[in-house]
Design a binder for these strands. Structure first.
Length: 536
RNA sequence: UCCGGUGUAGCGCAGUGGUAGCGCAGGUGACUGUUAAUCACUUGGUCGUAGGUUCGAAUCCUACCACCGGAGCCA
């Protein structure tokens, strides 16, 4: 038929074909092709629009409740959860449904019905059930677990609603980071992960055998980025970073992700401005999409809504004065006093609850009491330790001497003084890296900045204007006792068209931790790498 | 590396020198609307390991191991 068709028709067909192909291509390019590659067509997140329709879901069993002649299966598919109902009248279905353990995988078919009694508002009356794999004794129950157990079962722990909420927020945050730089004229530069030895602070790097030579996993892309900035003006890199420090704290990972912009013709105030705009954009984009997830995590959203420019900017010297100030001391002592009273009150409550428990009969009321007791004990223990730490921190802060670097305690005290991130600039030269530009008006300090997140989350951004004068840079390297030979390429940047420039690094996981309001950084990355933990 | 804490059933925890306990999970049964369902019954333990003190140790002492939190360092 095509062969016999008139030429004009052939032309039309091929034109149409080309047009269609173009649409498909465009869809792929913009990622707007919704789930185009999957067999699955119906997702739980869309069920509210499918009232009275028969659909098939593919997913996993979250939980099961039975009520005599009725079974409720709670199913999740990665987009949400749906309650599915099987009644005893359908004997075979009923028996199959009753036999499914937590996290069994299945395809399930039924009619969707909007119902206020169902979690999520829509439920399914099951007409067909195809188990894919029946799971038994899933290790993670829908009750409390200790952190060691959860960490060894991280691959399964990821399925819990709390973890998926965090991972979704992490995803949005990373997208927002890329979008911010892409939309502001930055070019993405991928810097190497294997780097030659003799870098600064070599003790903190992971050694790797490179054909018999010892090289290291990168702890920053910065030096390479500087050369790219001389080529493209505004650049950034985004990738994993490795630190072999033996830090066992809630703020440290040995492998984490960092985004680093580097800008030619930029000075310190420009960098602060970029960091400020970036952080606002990040918080904004998370608030836009993840109200529900943040609420689920128990995050105080009001605190995030305060993240608007301008951020306070203080110098290191002013920060030290802040640490010594009687105002700060008074504020912290007041907080401590309030917490001590809270602790006493809780201990009183615990005492009362224990007495109640002693005379309680077995059964439901005493279960509740047990729960309360455990809860109280845990809270008391945590607050007790916290108070002890803060008391120590306070006296340390008061004795802090100009010239030292801030530790976690000092950062906490400074950041708690403000309700939005604070930019601290111009640290003492001798505690900072060789590449930071010495302040023209005071050679004792460098043109660097740290951004401290509020609510005690500490440093999330660290950066500086770089030393762009060859002679000063060489002097600094000599001061640090560095061998210049491995850095000849870096020094070349100061020989051929050197310009003022600078950049900073943003730690993704610390930012996720702050935005989600988490107690520990280990929940911000799918498989955290911590000192002494590499499984799974 | 240093300081502090914890280790009791598959999981979460109580138990301060005198017979090993509670909740959840697992098993059996009851219940037609549950929301971490509920109720009854039930299986399950070399109390981290090794020594010591004692008539007697989960409990006291010593050493070691594992984990957690913090310091230093950093994002």
């Amino acid at each position: 038929m095509f062969i016999s068709a008139p030429p004009i028709c052939k032309l039309f067909v091929s034109w149409k074909f080309l047009y269609f192909r173009q649409i498909i291509r465009r869809m792929r390019l913009t990622f707007s092709s919704k789930e185009i590659l999957m067999k699955q067509t119906v997702f739980i997140k869309d069920l509210r629009n499918l009232d009275q329709q028969e659909v098939t879901l593919h997913g996993w069993v979250v939980g099961k409740r039975s009520g005599g002649k009725i079974v409720f299966l709670l199913i999740r598919d990665g987009t949400g959860t749906c309650q599915c109902i099987v009644e005893a009248a359908q004997k075979e279905l009923f028996d199959t449904a009753s036999s499914l353990g937590q996290e069994s995988s299945l395809s399930i078919t039924g009619k969707i019905r909007l119902d206020s009694r169902a979690p999520g508002g829509a439920e399914m009356s099951v007409t067909g059930l195809q188990p894919i794999q029946v799971a038994d004794n899933f290790p993670i129950a829908r009750k409390s677990h200790g952190i060691d157990f959860l960490m060894t079962h991280r691959h399964l722990w990821l399925r819990s609603p709390r973890q998926t909420a965090i991972l979704r927020i992490r995803h949005t945050l990373i997208r927002a980071v890329r979008r911010f730089f892409d939309d502001n004229g930055f070019t993405l530069i991928d810097t190497p992960i294997l780097s030659p030895g003799a870098a600064e602070g070599a003790g903190t790097l992971f050694p790797v055998d490179y054909f018999g030579e010892e090289v290291y996993l990168a702890q920053t892309g910065q030096l390479y980025l500087e050369s790219a900035a001389m080529a493209l003006g505004k650049v950034y890199c985004f990738g994993p970073t490795f630190r072999a420090e033996k830090s066992k704290t809630r703020r440290h990972l040995t492998e984490f992700w960092m985004v680093e912009p580097e800008i030619a013709f930029a000075e310190l105030p420009d960098l602060a401005e970029v960091a400020e705009a970036m952080l606002c954009a990040l918080v904004d984009s998370v608030l836009k999409v993840h109200r529900e997830d943040l609420a689920f995590l128990g995050r105080d959203v009001a605190a995030l809504e305060k993240i608007k420019p301008p951020f306070p900017r203080i110098t290191y010297t002013e920060a030290v004065e802040l640490l010594h100030s009687p105002d700060v001391r008074a504020r912290i002592e007041k907080e401590l006093q309030a917490d001590r009273e809270r602790l006493q009150q809780w201990i009183g409550e615990l005492d009362g609850a224990e007495k109640q428990r002693a005379v309680a009969k077995p059964g439901w009321p005493s279960d509740k009491l047990d729960q309360q007791l455990q809860d109280l004990r845990e809270r008391i223990h945590e607050l007790d330790i916290d108070i002890a730490h803060r008391t120590e921190h306070l006296s340390d802060a008061q004795r802090f001497e100009w010239g030292n670097d801030f530790g976690g305690d000092e950062e906490t005290i400074i950041s708690r003084h403000f309700d939005r991130p604070v930019v601290v600039t111009k640290y003492p030269r001798r505690v900072k890296a060789f590449y930071m530009k010495v302040a023209p008006d005071n050679p004792e300090v460098v043109l660097n900045m740290d951004v401290l997140a509020p609510e005690g989350y500490g440093e999330i951004v660290g950066g500086s204007q770089r030393e762009d004068q060859l002679d000063v840079l060489l002097k600094r390297m000599a001061e640090e006792g560095m061998n210049t030979a491995p850095y000849e390429w870096y020094l070349d940047l100061r020989r051929y068209g050197s310009v003022p420039h600078g950049g900073f690094g943003l730690g993704i996981e610390r930012t996720v931790s702050w935005i989600c309001g988490l107690k520990h950084i280990r929940e911000t990355i799918p498989f955290p790498r911590l000192m002494g933990r590499i499984y799974p």
